[in-house]
């Protein structure tokens, strides 16, 4: 139940792109076609799904003040939290390098089209952001960390998928020349983010039952679609 809350929350209400604006660089640069967007989005889900729990374990059993107490009473006073940034980033970087090698080996075409942005997943702020939010939220178990990682990854995936679909359509519209490409993408993302702000009011904690959540989920999906069409019609007009 709590996990479901967390999952829905991390996808929609705390969407990495539209609520926290994390991972914008690759989001804007690799969203020209749906195909590459799906590739990058899947990579982000995968990396978040792995790095958040791994970083959770590292944080809980190595870095936090008193985390080393499992080694013995002498170690209980050690506080390594000043190393958390570098540890998180090292875990992330090695995972990304792993993904890069795997993609290069099995899908050279995808590797070619993702170009410079595959290594840049490492600095995709949403990945480190995920690790830092995990630390801040003080999860009580690894299952929460896994759920959170998956949820924020899927949220990011949805966001890049939506913008890629819009951009494919926009290619047929008459956008002012200097706004073409990047400019209009910024503005559309801004409008989409304003739409996503309406999720902020949804409260999932408390004693609502599953149905309410599903209803909220459904209306979320509806909202997103409506908004996309609204944006598209606005631009087409």
């Amino acid at each position: 139940m709590d996990l479901l809350n967390l999952f829905v929350k991390s996808i929609f209400i705390e969407n990495m792109i539209f609520a926290y604006f994390l991972g914008m660089c690759s989001y804007l640069a690799v969203s020209k076609t749906v195909k590459t967007a799906v590739g990058l989005g899947a990579a982000v889900i995968f990396v978040l799904l792995i790095t958040v729990p791994v970083n959770y374990l590292i944080d809980t059993y190595l870095l936090q003040a008193g985390a080393l107490s499992w080694l013995g009473a002498d170690y209980a006073s050690i506080d390594l939290s000043f190393l958390s940034y570098i540890m998180f980033i090292a875990v992330i970087a090695s995972m990304v390098q792993l993904v890069e090698m795997v993609v290069e080996k099995f899908s050279p075409a995808l590797y070619g089209s993702l170009g410079i942005f595959l290594p840049l997943i490492a600095v995709n702020c949403s990945i480190l952001g995920g690790a830092l939010f995990m630390q801040q939220k003080a999860f009580t178990g690894i299952s929460e960390a896994i759920t959170y990682g998956a949820g924020s990854g899927i949220g990011w995936f949805l966001a890049i998928l939506a913008i890629a679909a819009i951009r494919e359509k926009i290619a047929y519209s008459n956008v002012p020349a200097p706004l073409k490409g990047l400019g209009i993408t910024f503005i559309i993302t801004g409008l989409m983010a304003i739409g996503f702000m309406s999720f902020m009011g949804i409260k999932l904690e408390g004693n609502e039952d599953e149905k309410v959540q599903e209803a909220a989920l459904e209306s979320n999906n509806m909202g997103e679609e409506d908004e996309q069409t609204a944006v598209i019609t606005a631009i087409e007009n």
């Binding site: 604006f21 706004l179 993408t185 910024f186 503005i187 993302t189 801004g190 409008l191 983010a193 702000m197």
Partner: peptide, 9 residues
């Protein structure tokens, strides 16, 4: 924040 996107646009 959404306004920042639009200003950059």
């Amino acid at each position: 924040s959404p306004m920042a996107l639009i200003v950059v646009g």
